[in-house]
Simulated assay, not measured.
Amino acid sequence: MKYFKKKVRIGLVGYQWAGTMHSRAYRELASYEDAAMGPVMQTLVGRNEEHAKLAAVRLGWMSYETNWRRLLIRDDIDIIDIASPTASHAEIAIAALEAGKHVISAHPLALHSADAARMLAAARKSQCIHMAANHLLYVPAIRVMKQWVEERTIGELRSLQIHYSDDSLLGQAVGIGRYLAGEFGRVTAAALSEYGKEGSWQAGVSEERARAADTASNRLTASAAEQQPQAFLASLEGGVAGIFCYAPYSCGGRRGIRIELGGTQGMIRWSMDNMNQLKLYAPEQSHGKRGSRSIRCTAEEHPQASYCWPLGQTIGTEHTFYSMIGAFLQSILTGKELTPSFEDGYRNLLVREAVYTSAAEDRPVDILYSK
């Protein structure tokens, strides 16, 4: 039997994709030899008793409940992990924090910034550890990008470009942007209808064909698509210019994200298609040999390497969850705040709402963060 310095007992609310990935992370972390804190998968919660019971067995939980409120009065629960639909996050998180439980909530933090603000207020009052889960911030290559920005590897950061091929990724793209380049000051968005005036939304694809393809794939309806902000400009800290683009008809590119950072002395690129690798251009090479080079971010000196396979092995999406959950548990052990917290989740929602307001009202929107 393995003994940890400290054990922490978890109650998971929800068992779909986020709940499944969080469960895998807890199981994996429980097997780490050097783990300072051991997660105990105490209870899974689901509204349907039959489904909850089956999910608990399938995912490795010791027991199940059908009402999340029962977790709040149990002494054998230290953490509430919220992986339920977004509309339920605020109510569960606030009640859990008031009951003295640490809370990790799936992305996005809430439906609206007003709900997120209430969650943040409850977190500050409780002094419990809180996390707004965005596993992409725990991709080792993105952590390396952040490190290089801070070290001025490419000089002064001047531009940030993020292209994402699924509208649900807007919030995560904003979170990555804030992580890499700082706070947003103003956004100016354009809606899809602005691009459709010439009758071609994508090279070689007619408007009618694009609408039909969209409906057939059960994504946005044509009327809803016209209201989606497809691109927006942002001004960030230190005069950094941000460009965010969403390609709704990027066939085969679903869940894709591409990032490019431009500095006064170089450039860094990353793509979800090759999540372990960065492209770095730094002009220190002699004339005639200048060009970008590829760097594989799986070495022991790279951030989050301890949560992944041995040096040189492929890191996948599941490892980002191991790393994220591991950081959350470590924060509980040390009592230190971590990123992304509920405050990050709240600020991301403010930016997202500003983007939609800008697209709907056809005007720039300033982002005001309340204390």
Rank of each mutant, 00 (worst) to 15 (best):
L261M: 15
S88N: 06
I367L: 10
V149T: 13
L72I: 10
R347D: 01
W201V: 07
S323Q: 07
V205W: 09
Y369D: 10
R209M: 10
Y26P: 01
E284C: 05
F244W: 11
D75I: 15
A132V: 15
K279E: 07
A121Q: 10
I176V: 11
E301F: 13
C308R: 03
F321H: 02
T339N: 15
Q285A: 14
L311I: 08
F244Y: 14
E300T: 15
W68A: 05
E343D: 15
A36P: 15
P310N: 02
V45E: 03
H319W: 06
S126Q: 14
G11Q: 03
I142D: 00
L350Y: 04
T339P: 11
D166H: 04
A231H: 05
L157P: 00
D362F: 12
L180C: 13
L170R: 05
H102Q: 05
K6N: 12
K101Y: 14
L120C: 11
G263M: 01
G288A: 12
G239R: 09
N48I: 15
R186Y: 04
A116Y: 08
R219M: 00
I257Y: 01
R118Y: 09
P283G: 08
A106F: 05
Y26H: 06
R211A: 08
G11L: 10
A90S: 06
T86G: 04
E156G: 00
R24W: 06
L160T: 07
Q42M: 09
